[in-house]
Amino acid sequence: MSPKGPSPLKVRLRRLLVILPWLAERGSASLAEMSERFQISEKELVADLEQAAMCGLPPFLDELVDLYIDDDGIAHIDVPRFFTRPLRLTAPEGFSLLMAGRTALALPGAEPDGPLARALAKLEAVLGSDGMVLDLAQPASTADLVAAVDDAAEVRVSYWSASSDEVSERNLVPRAVFSDRGRWYVLADDDRSGEERTFRIDRILSCERTGRLDVVREVAVPGGDEWFDDLPAVDTATLRIGPGGRWVVERFPVRSIADDPAGGGWQVVELAVASEGWLRQLLVRLGPDAEVVAPPAWRDLGARAAAELLAARYAAD
C-alpha cells in the first residue's frame, strides 16, 4: 500500500497534521506501529518527523516539535503548542464519514441504536444534520449471503441468468457481497464454472446452505469503475443512442463514447455485449432512441426482436 518514492507535499503535510496530534497525545510510539497505522514507510515517516522538528518560527526560540528517535525505533516527541489537535474535518471527509456510517447502518445486521448510530449522532452534532438518505434496499437473500461469506459456508442456489435466459442450479462459496449502481451482487467460487464469478442477488431464486464449510478467503471486490456480470462480455456493438437512451451509458459497460456528428444530442457508443439476447432486449427497450451501426448482422436485431415479441405475446391485438 505504501507509495513508491516521496509523496506529494500535500499528502505529506496532511499526514503530518494527523500524526503529530496522535503522537503528542501518547508522548512516544514505535516507528513500526506508526508505519502500519498511517500506511507510510518508516523511512518516509522519519524524514517527515525530522522535517517537522526543523520547523519553528524565527528566532527559533520556541521549537515547534521536539523529537528524539531512540535505538529501539521508538519516537519520543513533545509538541509544545500547535498541532496538539487534529485539523477539523474537511467537507469531503465529513461527507465520506457520514455517508459511510449511514451506508453501514442500512446493511444487514446493523444495530439501529448501537455504537455506529451513536457515532453518527455525534458527527451530525458537529457537521450539521443534513437530511442525507441512502436507499440501499437489499434483495431477500442478502443477509444470508453475508453470513455465508463470514462462515465461508457453501450454498445451493438456483439462479436466473439474463444473458443466457436460463435457470441453473449451482453450489457457491460466497466470498464477498457488494452493491454497485444500486444493485447487489455476490462474488463466489462457482462449482459449475470452476471459477470465481459474480452473481446478481435479486436473480437468486432460492438459496440454502449445504452444510459444507470452506476456508475463509479474502477476494478483491471490483470498484465502481469496473464492470462485471454473470457472463463475460463476448462482443462489441456500435450503437447510435438518442437523448432518451442516455441511461444506457450510465448503466452498462461502454468501451468508447463520442458525440454523433449529426448532433441532436445523439451519441455513438461502443457497448460491451454479453449475449445477443441481452442486446435484443436492450434494443426493444430503447426503441426509436437506438440504432445499431455495427456489426451489420445486428442492424435489424431490434426490429426482429420486437416482431417476435409481438407474435409471442400480442398476436391477437
Binding site: 426493444v284 445499431v292 435489424d300 436485431l301 426490429a303 426482429r304 420486437a306 416482431a307
Partner: peptide, 10 residues
Amino acid sequence: LRAISASVGG
C-alpha cells in the same frame, strides 16, 4: 413494438 418492428436498423 410495431414501430420498432417496422423500422430497419432499429
